[in-house]
Every structure is written in C-alpha cells, then in structure tokens.
C-alpha cells in the first residue's frame, strides 16, 4: 500500500461519489495518452481519521483543459494514434482526464470493512489509489455494495457499472467462476422487479 502510486486527485467530492483528475503517469521518454482507470475498478482514498474510503470507477472522460472548447485535430499523414502524442509531448498539459467513482464502503483505522456509504465524503485534493487485486478480492467477498452500484444513474447506467465491476474482478482473478455466479445471482436478487435491467447486466457479464 505504501509503495503504490496515486492515480488521481479529488477535484469534486460528494457523499455519493467523487470526481478525480487523473494524474499524469507519463515519464519524459515516451509520452502516451492519459487514460482514466478501468470502468468498474476499485479505488480508495485516505481519510483524515486514518481509514480509507472505497469507490468503484463509474465514468471517465478526457477533454481539453478549457472545457468550453473541443480539442484540435492533430493527426496528419502517417501520424496517427499514439504517434500524435509523441509528436506533441506538450499535449498532456492541455488535456484533462477526469473519472467518477461511486462510494461503496470504507475501512476503519482498525481494518474493519463496511460496505455502505462512508460518514463523510472523501476530502478534496486527496489522492486516489488503485486497489490491489488482493484488496479488490477482499472487498468483493460481501456483495451488499452492489446495491449502491446499481443505483448509479448517470452518466453510465448502474447495471453497466456493476457488470463492468464484476468483469474487472473476474479479469483480476481468472478461474473464479463460482464468485461470478454468486455475483450474478446477487444482481438477479437485487433486480428481481426489473427484468430489463437484469438482462442488460447479465448480458454484459456473459463471456
């Protein structure tokens, strides 16, 4: 945990979700596009009392720094895709990558996990860290927080965020079909009155 690098800094915070700007991972040698963390991945933030708040990435976007203006086209001739970034190493200074993450739980300083909304929103300007595969696995053992994920309304629908989250965990822990099955049943239970959304979620889970 101590050695992990932060991936973002909180630029807007609420009781339900946080908005963070992606920190530039680029070293000088090879400039690459700056991307938000995977949809559905688990991230966390230190909080002042010594605990951590957990959140699931629910949305990502990259725009120009001036959000009023669209980015300018840079491709020409053979210069396409990441070559654009190599030709314009200054790009990451004029582009901004933002991601949203839904708050799904917190860990007390004593290490107890709670899978409901934290008492306080995470503080502004605090750093956002990606959860390790082990942390993700530990957090996802109890799926009660799926209800919070399914409640997300915008911009990505909750069932898609939830499915993405399950896919992400399945990717981190290959061969964990039993967990995926359990997750699918849990989603089915939560969406028992909404077959349309359930279908959407589980279709997005099918391999």
């Amino acid at each position: 945990m101590g050695t992990q690098q932060p991936i973002g800094e909180i630029v807007e915070t609420t009781s339900l979700y946080l908005v963070a700007q992606r920190l530039d991972p680029n070293t000088e040698a090879t400039p690459r596009p700056v991307q938000p963390p995977n949809l559905g991945s688990l991230v966390w933030v230190h909080v002042p009392d010594g605990g951590r708040v957990f959140a699931v990435v629910s949305y990502g976007t990259t725009t120009g720094v001036d959000s009023q203006r669209r980015a300018v086209v840079r491709s020409h001739g053979e210069v396409l895709d990441d070559r654009v970034y190599r030709e314009h190493p200054q790009l990451h200074r004029v582009l901004r990558t933002i991601f949203h993450a839904v708050l799904v739980g917190y860990e007390t300083p004593q290490g107890t996990l709670h899978r409901h909304l934290p008492p306080q929103p995470p503080p502004l300007h605090y750093a956002v860290y990606p959860a390790t595969p082990e942390e993700t696995q530990r957090f996802s053992q109890d799926m009660r927080y799926f209800r919070l994920l399914l409640a997300v309304t915008s911009p990505v629908p909750g069932e898609q965020v939830t499915a993405a989250h399950v896919r992400e965990i399945a990717r981190l822990h290959p061969g964990n079909e039993e967990w995926v099955e359990r997750a699918a049943r849990h989603i089915a239970r939560l969406l028992k009155r909404d077959y349309e959304r359930l279908q959407a979620a589980l279709e997005a889970l099918a391999p």
Binding site: E181, R185, R189, Q199, L202, E203, A206
Partner: peptide
Amino acid sequence: DPPREANELLTRALRGTG
C-alpha cells in the same frame, strides 16, 4: 421474454431469484 437458451448465466442467476 424468457431468457434464451444461450444465456445460461442468466437462467442460472434467475433460478430462485427472479
């Protein structure tokens, strides 16, 4: 609109839930 045969995960997830 029952789940199609192909979507086994859906069928299994629905058993005992939906």
